[in-house]
Amino acid sequence: MSSGRSKHAPAAFTLVEALLAFGVAFVLMVVLYTLLVSSRRGMVRGEGKLEYIGEANLLFQSLKMDVQALRKAPAWNEAAKELKLDILRVERKPYRAVPERVTYRLESGTIHRRADLTGAAAELEHRRFGLDKLKAFKVTPGALRSAPNITVNLRFEIEADNAPTDFSKVLFLKNLLTDKTWNPLPEP
């Protein structure tokens, strides 16, 4: 009895079963593919956002350092997307203050900080912020009571993003510009 039944039992799928199995596998593959693509996009977005945070903080720190050493009011050129800062750079051996002009300029997604120096010193002072992902850089002068300030706005965006990421920071033009006792070194 058993040997006779086993000879006629199906050894593989019927066509209908094969089609159904193919359909189920296809749906499963589509779901998996969508999941992987969206997770990859999410990871790129997440990495991008963390990079934005790091770059924005680095830029704000650099700006803050320069703004604290200002000797003249900052000059913002909206058309060129360029911020000019006249600062006093402190040098050691001998200990002295050197006037210097620093520019922050947006060029193809990156803000370049350059000092008006030449040679190796210029390259040393040339810093880059934004990793080619900056879409906008804007500086607005303002004041709060007796304290003049500048508001720096940054906008980051890459292709994988579904919305731009904005950062804003108010930097007060304190110290050298407003407080004459902050740095005892006289200008040369």
């Binding site: 934005y52 920071k169 930097l171 007060f172």
Partner: peptide, 28 residues
């Protein structure tokens, strides 16, 4: 993971907004 990254971004932006006031107090 995606929500965690978004919250980190929110925290940074919120901290920058709060820090603006702290710096204002320092400047005034």
């Amino acid at each position: 993971g995606h929500q965690g990254t978004a919250q980190t971004l929110h925290q940074t932006q919120a901290f920058l907004l709060a820090d603006d006031v702290v710096e204002a107090v320092g400047a005034l």
